[in-house]
């Protein structure tokens, strides 16, 4: 059922990075955010409200371990200890299972906050497309959510829907995007939304003489149309930011951009850390507030 190959797409490059130019020992407040998703987990450490380091890895069978391992990467690389971190916030679908977290915040609020940091305060629309869900978020200039919707009921428009087609075509999932542009002409989108029916439709197209690439193009287009219809519900406003697994599939991203008539904002960091970053930033704000009230009380 789950061949190693089709999981490959959702196994982002596991990456660990720290900002060597910063000295966490000199910082007043060190916070961490841990995003335990269904497919990958990220840990981000912020010093004085600035991104300091992150680590991203596959989520294992067990959420607490995934959280610990993700954070361990940053700790190891920086020589930090868990005790050095003043506040930890968990987010993502496994957020309540982060053992050392002081608080849990939904990924909706965290993604908005993280995107605001990475993409700048002009970001208004955020699309987060993960392995098993899809979220569209509208936020204000502070990264506060003003409108959001989530779709985790239906596999169409999620990474899972993409896996199904990769499986059907027997093509590694990472190749789908580039291949979808290697066609003589852009086909019409697959008409069924439902993954089950789209799969039969795709088979029919193959029988009718479509090349594999063309079928993939038709499927990517359908995926893009579906996601756009979701975003339209909350209203599209520039700037636009994409996070999550789908950000890695140019076949879908480019088509979404074309439909919306806009391009997604660029970031020098890996956009998948948005959730964990947002969580760490929330932690920072919270510490500032507590610090302020502590002084007041004193």
């Amino acid at each position: 059922m789950s061949s190693g190959e089709k999981k490959e797409y959702w196994r982002w490059q596991e990456s660990c990075w720290i900002d060597e130019s910063k000295d966490w020992r000199a910082a007043k407040i060190v916070t961490a955010g841990i995003d335990v998703g269904s497919v990958s987990s990220q840990a981000v450490v912020c010093v004085d409200g600035e991104l300091y380091g992150f680590n991203s890895m596959r989520t294992g069978n067990n959420s607490p371990d995934s959280a610990t391992n993700a954070l361990a990467g940053v700790l190891e690389k920086s020589g930090m200890k868990l005790e050095d971190i003043t506040y930890v916030i968990g987010t993502g679908y496994g957020r309540v299972n982060v053992p050392f977290a002081h608080k849990a915040i939904t990924e909706i609020a965290c993604h908005a906050r993280g995107a605001n940091y990475m993409g700048g305060n002009k970001i208004r629309t955020i699309l987060d497309m993960g392995g098993q869900d899809c979220k569209a978020i509208h936020c204000d200039e502070k990264g506060k959510v003003t409108n959001f919707l989530m779709n985790d009921k239906c596999a169409a428009g999620t990474g899972r829907g993409m896996e199904v087609i990769a499986d059907l075509m027997q093509i590694p999932i990472a190749e789908l995007g580039p291949r979808s542009f290697d066609v003589d002409e852009e086909p019409q989108a697959v008409s069924s939304t439902c993954v089950v029916f789209a799969k039969s439709e795709a088979l029919g197209l193959l029988k009718a003489g479509y090349s594999k690439n063309k079928v993939i193009a038709a499927y990517c287009q359908a995926m893009a149309e579906r996601v756009v219809s979701l975003i339209e519900r909350i209203g599209v406003e520039n700037d636009f930011f994409i996070t999550g697994g789908i950000a890695k599939n140019v076949g879908v991203v480019k088509r979404i951009e074309k439909l919306l008539g806009t391009t997604a904002a660029e970031t020098k960091y890996d956009s998948q850390i948005a959730g964990a970053l947002g969580a760490a930033l929330f932690g920072h704000t919270l510490m500032l507030k507590q610090g302020a009230s502590a002084t007041k009380a004193a």
Binding site: N147, L149, M150, C154, C194, R233
Partner: peptide, 16 residues
């Protein structure tokens, strides 16, 4: 904030 709870599937869009 407008919080939309629900989903969209092949059969339609259902949000509260």
């Amino acid at each position: 904030m407008i919080a939309n709870y629900g989903y969209k599937d092949g059969s339609g869009e259902y949000y509260i």
